[in-house]
Amino acid sequence: MGDRPEIRAGEVALGHDPGDTPDAGITFIGRIRSPWSRGDCPKNIGRARETGQGARIELAPEYAQALTGLSVGQPILLQYWMDRARRDLVMQAPRHAEGPRGTFALRSPNRPNPVSVSTVVITALDPEAATIDIDAIDCFDHTPVVDIKPWLETVDAPPA
Rank of each mutant, 00 (worst) to 15 (best):
D138W: 07
A97H: 10
Y80H: 12
Q79E: 14
A13S: 11
G15L: 06
S34E: 01
G19D: 14
W36P: 11
R49N: 04
R33E: 04
P75C: 09
V146Y: 06
D156W: 08
V117D: 03
L78A: 06
R31I: 04
G25W: 15
E11H: 09
T143Y: 15
I122C: 01
I122P: 00
T27G: 09
S34A: 05
A124D: 01
I76M: 05
P42M: 15
F104P: 08
D135N: 03
T21M: 05
N110G: 06
P18S: 11
V145T: 04
L152F: 03
P112L: 08
C139K: 03
P100G: 09
V117F: 09
G54M: 02
P18F: 11
G10F: 08
A9H: 13
T131D: 03
W81P: 06
Q65V: 03
G25C: 14
E11I: 08
R49I: 03
D40K: 05
G54A: 00
A60L: 11
R33N: 02
A48V: 02
D3Y: 14
I137T: 05
D3R: 08
I29D: 04
G19A: 14
S118N: 11
V72N: 01
P18E: 08
A24E: 15
V121A: 02
S71I: 00
A48P: 01
R4F: 07
Q53D: 15
L67D: 01
L77I: 05
D88P: 11
P18Q: 06
T119M: 13
E62L: 05
I132Q: 01
Y63V: 01
E128V: 04
V146T: 07
I76E: 07
P127M: 04
A97R: 10
